[in-house]
């Protein structure tokens, strides 16, 4: 697993984490990604998480569920999650399969995702102060 190019990257951008999946992940890699991401939210005290899934070939029931779990865990850790880059054909297959991302917010691309986060995160932090 340690050889070859990285399967995912988790980058810090201010108070956000930008997690990109670079290739198709199998189930255990997906679980490891989930663990890494949740851990880093705590490490970096992140307020928002963007998960870029543009490179995923398929979002089947397991993949969708894992993304939902990540978003829920991140929420419990105080971070807001946005999923970006779901490809049109992947979206089609997810709907046909009967899957969705539930209540998790989605955006078309990274830019939209960041815009959404900054509108939500700054307003909620403004309220709390």
């Amino acid at each position: 697993m340690s050889i070859g190019p990285a399967l995912v990257s988790i980058l810090r951008q201010g108070s956000y984490l930008i997690a990109s999946i670079h290739t198709a992940l199998d189930d255990s890699q997906m679980i490891r990604f989930q663990e890494d991401l949740i851990e880093q939210i705590g490490q970096h005290r992140s307020r928002g998480v963007i998960i870029d899934v543009a490179a995923l070939d398929v979002l089947d029931s397991f993949g969708s569920r894992t993304l939902r779990n990540i978003a829920e865990m991140a929420r419990l850790r105080g971070a807001l999650t946005v999923i970006v880059g779901i490809q049109p054909e992947v979206a089609f297959a997810m709907v046909e399969l009967g899957m969705g991302t539930g209540s998790v917010f989605t955006a078309l691309d990274l830019e939209e995702g960041l815009a959404y986060l900054s509108s939500r995160v700054s307003s909620s932090s403004a309220l709390s102060t």
Binding site: V58, M94, L97
Partner: peptide
């Protein structure tokens, strides 16, 4: 799922159908 996708791609399935097939194989 990648094997199924590559094979199906050879006879000209649409991108959507390829993903649909790959998803079903994955399940």
């Amino acid at each position: 799922r990648q094997g199924a996708r590559e094979l199906a791609d050879r006879i000209g399935f649409s991108r959507t159908d390829l993903t649909v097939i790959a998803t079903a194989v994955s399940e």
